[in-house]
């Protein structure tokens, strides 16, 4: 049975508009896309305002946490970027963001993103399992040859050029893997839209 929920009808009309591009570019499709973008931005702005209110303004005004003036001022400084005259003030907010970001991620990035993966993938050798062993060898060969491919300060000739060619094949292989990955993601997005139309809007039961 077709749903009578108004929200679902709006979603269905916009979804059909979005899918209508497979036939031809049209106004319905553009309205659907622009609505999605507008709604996303609106959602972001409202969430940001509510967060600033809950985490800074309310504690400052109601609880008297005066130290919160500092992040509020830095936040206002960021907004000055829209001013031609006072745009330079935004650098202070940006500098603070960059500094905090580097400080927070910098303390863990070396261990969690470099040492641990290398230790667990390259340095751990299980010679009893031929498949794992082969995987480790391929991993090291691909790592070295790909890094050498980007060695641009030495002329590409002789053995180095051949090794770099191997690295190029590994890069092409990786890019080939990424292509269907993104296709699958797009198919998943389309499928989600069709599920909304078929099962939630039109009421066709989901097969199990």
């Amino acid at each position: 049975m077709v749903s009578l929920e108004p929200g679902l009808w709006i979603a269905a009309i916009l979804s059909i508009g979005y899918l209508s591009v497979v036939v031809k570019d049209n106004v319905w499709y553009r309205v659907a896309v622009e609505t999605l973008l507008g709604a996303s931005v609106g959602n972001w702005v409202v969430t940001a305002l509510l967060t600033v209110n809950a985490q800074a303004i309310t504690p400052l005004v109601i609880d008297g946490q005066v130290m919160l003036i500092i992040p509020i001022l830095l936040g206002i400084a960021l907004l000055m970027a829209v001013s031609a005259r006072y745009g330079w003030v935004s650098r202070y907010g940006n500098a603070w963001l960059m500094g905090v970001g580097c400080g927070i991620s910098g303390t863990t990035v070396v261990k969690q993103m470099i040492i641990v993966p290398i230790a667990d993938s390259i340095l751990t050798w299980n010679v009893a399992d031929a498949a794992v062993l082969l995987g480790r060898i391929v991993l090291i060969v691909s790592l070295v040859t790909t890094l050498l491919y980007f060695l641009l300060t030495i002329e590409r000739k002789g053995y180095l050029a051949r090794v770099q060619q191997v690295g190029r094949y590994f890069i092409m292989l990786m890019m080939g893997i990424f292509l269907p990955t993104h296709q699958n993601w797009n198919i998943g997005a389309m499928q989600q839209m069709l599920q909304l139309l078929m099962h939630q809007w039109l009421g066709i039961p989901e097969p199990m």
Binding site: Q112, M113, V116, P117, I118, A119, D120, S121, M174, I177, F178, T181, W185
Partner: peptide, 12 residues
């Protein structure tokens, strides 16, 4: 996506 996780698997 496998391509995103593989650099950190197994390990992180």
């Amino acid at each position: 996506f496998a391509g995103t996780a593989l650099p950190f698997y197994p390990g992180s």
